[in-house]
């Protein structure tokens, strides 16, 4: 695959806690290509969230590189294509990486519409009319256009998570990161959220998804990573991972969850 298809390159990423005694990420190297739907699975505490959160620097890695469009965003400066040294603007990179959290993290003091238009207006300088128009179109896409004036507390979990997804989409990100987006939901609401994610994937969005929904991983994912103890233990297509697991840790894990 050509370098231009590589959206994110993670190289020897390490994240240590507790003065270096806890290796949340232990030398992880992986690429995310444009259009990938990369599903990350693994037992609790294996470093899935840490890996995902490192991608947009919500966690600062202890060591290693994260190249986004070939710029190492873990460093303060980079050399641009004209040979000049420029500052790495992490806010700029974060705009291009949407993130969806397990607990939605909607802004409770703002209406659904205001949740969606705040960042486009303040960060991108989009006008209120334009942002509102776009928000209403997105709300329509997820069937929530009648809730624009509601506050987050008035919504069900599934509705909140759908809003969180479209709020991130308002920034027109190049990649969407999902950290267990359905784990905090009542079972009957999981489907509606996965449906939105599936549509997004079919639309060609690059996605990195941490999830325990093995059905989604198999059906929607084109690559699956299995992590354990901060290490990337096995990587492959859904068929390879689910039907022909090689590593005993993975076989063990699948026996427990499937």
């Amino acid at each position: 695959m050509a370098t231009s298809d590589k959206l994110i390159q993670v190289k020897n990423l390490k994240k240590y806690y507790n003065k270096g005694t806890l290796h949340a990420l232990d030398d992880v190297t992986v690429d995310v290509n444009k259009g990938d739907v990369m599903v990350v699975i693994g037992p609790s505490g294996s470093g899935k969230s840490t890996l995902l959160r490192s991608l947009n620097l919500l966690e600062i890695p202890t060591d290693g590189e994260i190249l986004f469009h070939n710029i190492d965003i873990t460093k303060k400066k980079f050399v641009n294509k004209h040979g000049k040294v420029e500052k790495v603007d992490i806010n700029l990179h974060r705009q291009k990486m949407g993130m969806v959290f397990q607990h939605f993290n909607l802004f409770p003091h703002k209406t659904i519409l205001d949740n969606m238009i705040l960042a486009p207006m303040k960060v991108l300088g989009v006008s209120k009319t334009e942002a509102t128009e776009k928000a209403m179109a997105l709300l329509k896409r997820v069937g929530l256009e009648d809730r624009a004036g509601a506050f987050p507390i008035q919504l069900s979990g599934g509705q909140k998570q759908r809003i969180a997804i479209v709020r991130a989409l308002m920034m027109e990100p190049e990649v969407m990161l999902f950290d267990e987006p359905t784990s905090a939901l009542d079972p009957e609401m999981v489907g509606e959220v996965l449906e939105v994610m599936k549509e997004l994937a079919l639309g060609g969005m690059t996605m990195v998804v941490v999830t325990h929904e093995m059905g989604f991983a198999r059906e929607v994912g084109n690559r699956v990573l299995f992590m354990a103890d901060g290490k990337l233990v096995e990587e492959g297509t859904p068929e390879e991972i689910f039907d022909h697991p090689k590593h005993p840790r993975l076989q063990d894990f699948l026996a427990k969850v499937l």
Binding site: N91, N105, H109, L118, V123
Partner: peptide, 27 residues
């Protein structure tokens, strides 16, 4: 104020100042 709010604001590209002004301080 739940730290998740700040993470959401930052992940949307808001600066620390914008996060304080629009998200954290009003609440």
């Amino acid at each position: 104020i739940d730290g998740g709010q700040t993470e959401a604001a930052r992940s949307l590209g808001m600066t620390q100042t914008q996060n304080m002004r629009y998200i954290v301080l009003p609440q």
